[in-house]
Amino acid sequence: MSSTTVSANAVLDQIKNRRTYYPLSKDLTVSPERVQEIIKEAVQHVPSSFNSQSNRVVVLFGDAHEKLWDITTEILKGIVPEANFAPTAGKMAMFKGAAGSVLFFEDQEVVEGMQAKFALYAEQFPIWAMQSNAMLQHTVWVALEAEGLGANLQHYNPIINAKVAEEWKIPSTWKLSAQLVFGGKTGPAGEKTFNPIEDKLKVFGA
């Protein structure tokens, strides 16, 4: 793959453009193959501690995507009181109405292997794996946004972990960390506000 030099501003513009979109449609601005290509490149190139490569991803389209949210709905029916379930059901239908879902996992076998190999840093490897996974989630989200797709990030783990693993034969060492729902944008993103940068950034020595 050839590399193209781009300015930092071009990269930052893509990051600024990433937003949360509700609801999403099944209309994709790019092919499913292009979505897979984007995710494959992100998985390969997002950094990880000691190059441990603990990130794992499952991409669901069509019936498989809808099955995920049917599973989640059924599980939530056993948790949320029936009298209060209507808003939850509406939210699940909204996610199901999108085009697909990206499931992000961390392979605990890799994490535990690194802990055994580098005992001095054993406590840090779960944290580093989570940080790498978060970078992957953000990278995929930004890249899909750059292709014109909308997305929103959900966290129905751990309550759906067992059923997801059973349905798609996920290895027992893969720990689910997030679900990125993607699809066509049906409207603008909500307003985004910012706290003062002075409260969040300090610079010394410049």
Rank of each mutant, 00 (worst) to 15 (best):
M1R: 09
S2W: 10
T4C: 11
T5R: 10
A10D: 14
V11D: 08
I15N: 07
R19V: 14
R19C: 11
T20A: 14
T20G: 10
P23V: 13
K26R: 10
V30H: 09
S31T: 15
P32L: 04
E33Q: 14
R34D: 06
V35H: 08
Q36L: 06
E37Y: 09
I38W: 03
E41R: 07
H45W: 09
P47Q: 13
S48H: 03
N51S: 05
S52Q: 15
S52Y: 09
N55S: 15
V57C: 05
V58E: 12
V59Y: 00
L60E: 05
D63L: 09
D63H: 05
A64R: 00
H65L: 07
K67W: 01
W69V: 10
W69I: 12
I71G: 00
T73I: 02
T73N: 07
E74I: 03
L76A: 11
P81K: 04
P81N: 02
P81W: 04
E82P: 09
A83P: 01
G90M: 02
A93W: 07
M94P: 05
F95G: 01
K96P: 06
G97F: 09
L103A: 11
F105D: 02
F105V: 01
V110Y: 01
V111M: 13
M114P: 09
E123K: 12
E123I: 01
E123G: 14
Q124M: 08
Q124N: 12
F125K: 01
F125C: 01
P126H: 10
P126W: 11
I127F: 05
W128C: 05
A129F: 04
M130C: 06
Q131I: 13
L136P: 06
V142K: 04
V142L: 02
A143M: 04
G148M: 08
G150L: 12
G150V: 07
A151W: 01
A151P: 02
N152M: 14
Q154N: 06
Y156C: 00
P158E: 08
K163Y: 02
V164P: 03
V164G: 04
A165F: 07
E166Y: 02
I170T: 00
P171S: 02
T173G: 05
W174C: 02
S177P: 00
S177T: 10
V181K: 00
K185Q: 04
E191A: 15
K192G: 10
T193M: 12
F194Q: 09
F194A: 13
P196K: 11
D199T: 12
K200C: 13
V203E: 07
V203N: 00
G205W: 08
